[in-house]
Design a protein around this nucleic acid. Structure first.
Lengths: 256, 256
DNA sequence: CGGGGATTTGACACATATCAAGAGCGGTGG
DNA sequence: CCACCGCTCTTGATATGTGTCAAATCCCCG
């Protein structure tokens, strides 16, 4: 695995509500995951607050004043940018252990909207407190720099996907990424529920929903997985990777 | 203007070589711009080193060990990612005052290659020294966080461009961005030399070089600017913005 | 002054978008 | 518990934007 910046990778078995029984949403002093959290030191200072977000609700919206960074504790989010000219695009899907909100640091206002795709729990930390703690805790500062760098790289990878891949490669890359992240969190990597619609996948991948649907059907025919509505099973990671490589070879051949 | 994170915006009149006469490439103690530099505090510590990079040379390459962050002092760079499967894409063009290399913080290795598109001068700062200084200088830490956030947002904007804009909009957005940044640096915003080839522009915008060329020709016919090889003049910013808005309206109409 | 890469332009191909219709599924209320 | 409604998804037919291929010109660099 990569020398993960995000050490906090919960292996959630219980539901969000069960968690909340034991951990009231006021602070994280009893957080079961604090030892492993990216921003661990903040727990010691008791500056983190637990929040529940229901499916469909926004954690923050584009234009909101930025104050907090959020760590997804359980659940699933999408972030999207909605520009004044009506352009709307999903920029990411976020699951347990991932940090959301770093787009707001630049000028104290969020550029993105974060919406829960299922009932979720997040940990919120005032960025100003985080900065203070960083000054005293070089390791925390170091991890935060790495975390932001990782977010830069992630966005560059999306740009690479959007700028240079065909529809099939994009969809394969999307599924492989999702599968890998679920597996890292202790879930099966070959069988999972998609929490987002075809339209949201398409928006993320720069494709129309019909193209996503068609590609799913085609992959199913190829035996790369079974898809039934939002449920994926029997995902053949090696097969998907081979599909991507083939497309890459074609590109290389075309160039030669 | 935006509450610029990058306070260091040189108004270069002289050439790179003239600069170097006065400022040997050993350190920045005599840097004319240190007062305004993003990473000002580092100059006080004399940890910054000036480098010259000739046109075509690499500042760093993908896979290189990451140690330094670079501030472009004069000149012009492109950064690009080159993956093992032969995918190659320009991820950005960088001019005076901009910081390059933040993609390497994540795991101590650069993901991108940075190549000078003209003879250039950069200031290099060991990242470890920067981190140490940050711990003592909260304002520097704060600016560095903002700088990285800005880079995150920039990459999101590229993704938005690649995922949702048509060729004409992309080219218009590219020229407007370039024009704005040149203007901020004291150059004319309506007349400038393109330092990159059509192919590099295309790679950055997710288009083929022929499409870039055709779009340039079309814009010229529309009277939005004159283009002669790499020279642009008479750039009509308002006209380009109108072109983008029209495309946006079409999109909105299509959706309704 | 020669040569090779860069650019332009045209003709054509193809991937994906668009438009359209119908089926499936999930939630809601009777 | 069933029936309905709306949203999501699938699939087909067609349109279109951009890629691909090719050739000529241009221009910069040596």
């Amino acid at each position: 695995m990569d020398g993960s910046i995000i050490a906090f990778v919960p292996r959630m078995q219980g539901t969000a509500s069960q968690d909340n029984v034991a951990c009231p949403p006021s602070n994280c002093t009893c957080c079961k995951l604090r030892e492993a959290c990216v921003l661990e030191e903040c727990h010691h200072e008791s500056v983190a607050t637990r929040l529940r977000v229901k499916r469909g609700e926004a954690l923050f919206r584009a234009g909101d004043r930025f104050r907090l960074l959020y760590i997804v504790h359980s659940g699933f989010f999408k972030t999207s940018s909605l520009t004044e000219d009506g352009r709307d695009q999903v920029t990411g899907f976020h699951m347990g252990g991932e940090v959301i909100g770093m787009d707001g640091i630049e000028d104290d206002h969020h550029k993105l909207t974060a919406i829960a795709l299922e009932d979720s729990n997040v940990c919120s930390i005032p960025f100003s407190a985080l900065e203070s703690t960083c000054s005293r805790e070089p390791m925390l500062q170091h991890r935060l720099f790495k975390l932001m760098s990782k977010e830069i790289v992630r966005n560059q990878e999306i740009a690479l996907l959007l700028g240079s891949m065909r529809a099939e490669e994009r969809v394969a890359a999307f599924l492989l990424d999702l599968s890998r992240r679920l597996q890292e969190r202790g879930y099966a990597g070959s069988e999972f529920h998609l929490r987002m619609t075809r339209e949201e996948i398409g928006s993320y991948l720069g494709l129309k929903l019909e193209t996503v649907s068609r590609t799913f059907s085609k992959f199913q025919e190829m035996g790369l997985f079974e898809v039934s509505n939002k449920h994926i099973s029997g995902l053949d990671r090696a097969g998907l990777e081979a599909t991507m490589e083939e497309a890459g070879l074609q590109r290389a051949a075309a160039r030669a």
